[in-house]
Design a protein around this nucleic acid. Structure first.
Lengths: 192, 192
DNA sequence: GTAGAATCGGAATCGTGATTCCGCTTGAAG
DNA sequence: CTTCAAGCGGAATCACGATTCCGATTCTAC
């Protein structure tokens, strides 16, 4: 690859990371090109479609989360590892838009890589959850489905950017309290 | 108003309720017109823009919720009223798309009516929350901001339609457990 | 029954933003 | 220092869906 091409690819990725992080999928290609100091044509030379570019960015972001998960699985205490990871994901969503979808959406054209990452993410989360449960830090009567729903909701709310950091922290703390084993038997839940 | 016009307006509203409930703002005007058995022009005769139509539908839906809130404020026990209302909103979001935004979004062109409804909703929720707290059913160390964030997240997750009813119910139950006063001293909450 | 205003239907228009195209530039091989 | 294929910029093209327009249809009043 020609050296200037490589340089441009890097610039495009950086700009896309920034713009997509701010605006999510709503970002425009022109804007990304402009911020990269490059023509739209160049963006398209490196990434066939907006979705492909988007996928590249999200994939990198998810990889970081997966590394974090691996670290936690390796060294952290099972009592806190699950909560730490959960909070990490929510914080990531708060700082950068458009991660949420990658977490679970049944996007139309899922690439093999994405499917794979999704599976890895799910595995890591399941493992951390089960360890936490075995360690007595997480209530035993819930499964991955509930966790995914809660994580999704928390990430989406965080992503809106309507709530300040402290408020989000307290909201997540409430969630975590609900996830701990109750000292007393759980109250019945009002049905709708 | 001419009788056929009134009839059409009704048909449009019904179709819009259905289509917007299924697809949210992504719904197309053609689709709404088609399902109403009417031309697009007719839809526009009754509602100036897609947003106006959308607003009319959401407004009606919110009104129902406000009535429910009034009922709860009037008769229900304060220990359960708050939770019942919270669950009711989430259930509504699960069955019909696009309510969430109306809950809090800072939409660009908010009509007076919507602002008013939003205020009413906020008041009702605040009242139910405070009653619950005074009755000792809701932990006292959280405020409306946290509740709104949690409600938003729950509604958004419910709206995706990715989770079955029972899973959602259990996830909401976890949330509710987190919102109850802890028997043991509360874990430290991340402060500002 | 008829006139005339109110409505209707849906093709044509517009706006927005992704994607393509192509003449011009530039890196690097010989 | 040439050569020329890879790469570039950004105007032109396309797609898609909201909104407008206007001739053709009803309703309703008389």
């Amino acid at each position: 690859m020609r050296s200037d091409a490589a340089r441009n690819r890097t610039k495009v990725l950086a700009a896309a990371e920034a713009v997509l992080g701010e605006q999510g999928l709503a970002a425009r290609m022109d804007e990304i090109a402009r911020r990269a100091g490059v023509g739209v044509g160049t963006v398209y030379r490196h990434f066939a479609t907006k979705e492909a570019l988007y996928a590249a960015i999200v994939s990198a972001r998810v990889d970081l989360l997966l590394q974090e998960a691996a670290r936690l699985r390796a060294c952290a205490e099972p009592q806190t590892a699950f909560f730490t990871f959960f909070a990490r994901i929510v914080a990531d969503a708060a700082s950068k838009k458009a991660l949420t979808d990658a977490l679970q959406d049944a996007g139309v054209d899922i690439k093999a890589e994405q499917t794979d990452q999704r599976a890895q993410m799910r595995d890591a989360l399941a493992d951390l959850l089960h360890r936490g449960q075995r360690a007595g830090a997480v209530r035993p009567d819930i499964g991955m489905l509930e966790i995914l729903a809660l994580l999704r909701g928390a990430s989406m709310a965080a992503e809106t950017g309507d709530y300040s950091g402290p408020v989000l922290d307290r909201a997540v703390a409430v969630l975590f309290d609900g996830l701990r084993p109750s000292v007393a038997p759980t109250d019945p839940v009002p049905q709708v």
